Amino acid sequence: MYLLTVLGNLLIIILIVLDSRLHTPMYFFLGILSFVDICYTNSTVPQMLVHFLSAWKSIPFHRCVLQLYISLAMGSTEFFLLGAMAYDRYVAMCHPLHYTVIMHGELCLGLASASLAAGLTNSLVQTLMIFQLPLCRKVVDHFACEILAVLRLACVDISLNKVMVAISGFLVIMLPCVLVLFSYAHIVATILRIRSSQGRRKAVGTCASHLTVVSMCFGTAIFTYLRPVGTSSAGQEKMVALFYAVVTPMLNPSSTA
């Protein structure tokens, strides 16, 4: 699954770069998303695979900090990118005659840059707040240095950190999710107005792959970071985290194809 994720997303990037017919806003965002998926997967999965094969499952403190920062930054960036991609599909479906005028190169580059900047900033704030806490325990009950698992190691009150995680989750997850819902509500209304069945099938096929990835990403993230406190165990958190760390990035190339 790890090899499929890396090779599949890398192949998408190479094809988009080499084929001039794919130099469009939709494939531009898709290439950025593939790059983010590669970075996100490489931040956690190789270390996890090493731990599967070794008896001493340890990670240096500085590498734990770096792992948390990169995974949180790439994960946050992906949510904003999915929101930008939903807006791109909205313009393509609802304003096709003005598509090239609205989705010009500067806007696409600006949306991608803003997504990356927001992801990096969110991760920096969260990482600094967490690793300023005194950590009494040294065993992370997780396969990676994940934000909630590291917080459990603190020997002081972490109420403020939990509030910050909730606020961050709302801004990073729910705001792009609202944009996605808004975009697809208008897309569905546009599809229903298409008279020919062939036109409807083509329109649905254009957006189905993106909507599949969006549903998996937002669904697992909402379950992990926006659920009521105490409604799931650490084991459930690890299973969900494994899903969005390994399965979702792997399905991105498959759903695109």
Rank of each mutant, 00 (worst) to 15 (best):
H62R: 15
V65P: 09
A55Q: 00
Y69M: 06
L49S: 05
W56S: 06
H51W: 00
H62A: 13
M48I: 11
P46I: 03
V65M: 12
E78I: 07
A55G: 01
I70A: 14
A55D: 00
W56R: 04
Q47H: 10
S76W: 07
Y69S: 07
Y69A: 04
K57P: 01
P46V: 03
L66G: 15
L72K: 03
A55S: 00
P46Q: 02
A73C: 07
Q67W: 09
F52P: 00
R63Y: 14
S58T: 14
L49F: 04
A73Y: 05
P46S: 00
F61P: 01
L49T: 08
E78R: 14
K57W: 01
Y69H: 15
L66S: 14
L66K: 03
L66M: 11
L68R: 08
I70L: 15
P46F: 01
C64R: 10
L66P: 11
S76C: 06
S54N: 01
A73K: 03
V50W: 05
L72S: 09
R63A: 13
L49Y: 06
F52M: 12
T77F: 00
P60M: 14
F52C: 04
P46T: 04
F52N: 04
F61R: 09
H62L: 15
F52D: 05
S54Q: 03
S71K: 12
C64W: 07
T77R: 01
A55M: 03
A55H: 01
L68E: 09
C64G: 14
V65F: 11
T77Y: 02
L72Q: 07
I59P: 02
